[in-house]
Simulated assay, not measured.
Amino acid sequence: MPEPYIRTGAPEDEEVLGRLDRAIWSYQHAVRPPDQPPYEPFFTERFGPRDHLVAELGGRVVGYVRLGFPTPLASNAHVRQVQGLAVAAAARGQGVGRALLRAAVAEARRQGALRISLRVLGHNTPARKLYESEGFVVEGIQPGEFQLGGVYVDDVLMGRRI
């Protein structure tokens, strides 16, 4: 099985990443309803191409991770936060999510961060297992924080030192 190739996002990834997001949409990991045409741009003023690491397998884009600051405060500038991670259904189970998460940790470290955090929905067991296997620990739970598809779902806060 080939190793995923991880690279920094580029403006030309806009369309393929938008399609990927729409293709994998599910309340398993999303807290908003699916986008409807006309679609919002994938890259925004807040999160541009350089805030994304993109995974390729066999030259095809199969996933991404978005890395940002949890707040705009200077007192919080030593922390980075995973603010999105997506893997195409056909590429799951091939180490893409793990490679993206490891690349995000390495990039956060390169940027001088001392800590990395993320939020994950309580019922997203596969993602939670991946994060735990990479050293993330549960640091807090907001019970029933979201109502998704008629069900109340916990928001789980996880983090680790880097």
Rank of each mutant, 00 (worst) to 15 (best):
G48W: 07
R46T: 14
Y39Q: 11
E12R: 10
P143K: 08
K129V: 07
F69L: 15
P143D: 10
P37K: 09
L148Q: 02
S75C: 14
R80L: 07
F69A: 15
A30V: 05
I24N: 13
V16H: 05
I6V: 15
Q94V: 06
P70S: 11
R115V: 03
L148F: 02
P72E: 12
R119S: 12
Y27I: 00
P70A: 11
R92G: 08
A108K: 02
V138P: 07
Y131I: 01
K129N: 09
N76T: 15
T125H: 10
E56C: 09
T8D: 10
P143L: 04
Q36R: 13
G149H: 07
R46L: 14
A86Q: 07
T71D: 12
L157M: 13
E15K: 09
R119C: 11
N76S: 15
R60T: 15
G97K: 04
Y27D: 00
G93L: 13
P2I: 12
V156G: 00
Q36Y: 05
R92E: 14
F136Q: 00
G9E: 03
G68R: 04
H78C: 09
W25R: 05
L148T: 02
R46S: 14
E56W: 06
V31E: 04
L57A: 01
L57W: 11
V151P: 05
R66E: 04
E15S: 11
V105T: 06
I162E: 04
G63S: 08
G149K: 00
R50D: 09
K129A: 12
R19E: 14
Q142D: 13
A89R: 15
R7G: 06
V61R: 10
L148H: 00
P34H: 11
Q111A: 14
L53W: 07
V156E: 03
R160K: 12
D155G: 04
R161Y: 14
G149Y: 08
L130I: 10
P34Y: 05
G97I: 02
A108R: 03
H29S: 13
Q81C: 10
F136V: 05
R19N: 12
L17K: 04
A90K: 14
E14H: 05
Q142K: 12
E12Y: 09
P4C: 06
I141G: 08
L130E: 01
Y152F: 12
Q142E: 15
E107N: 10
W25M: 07
Q111V: 13
Q142F: 11
P4W: 03
I6N: 05
D51Q: 12
P143S: 08
R161A: 06
A10H: 08
R66P: 01
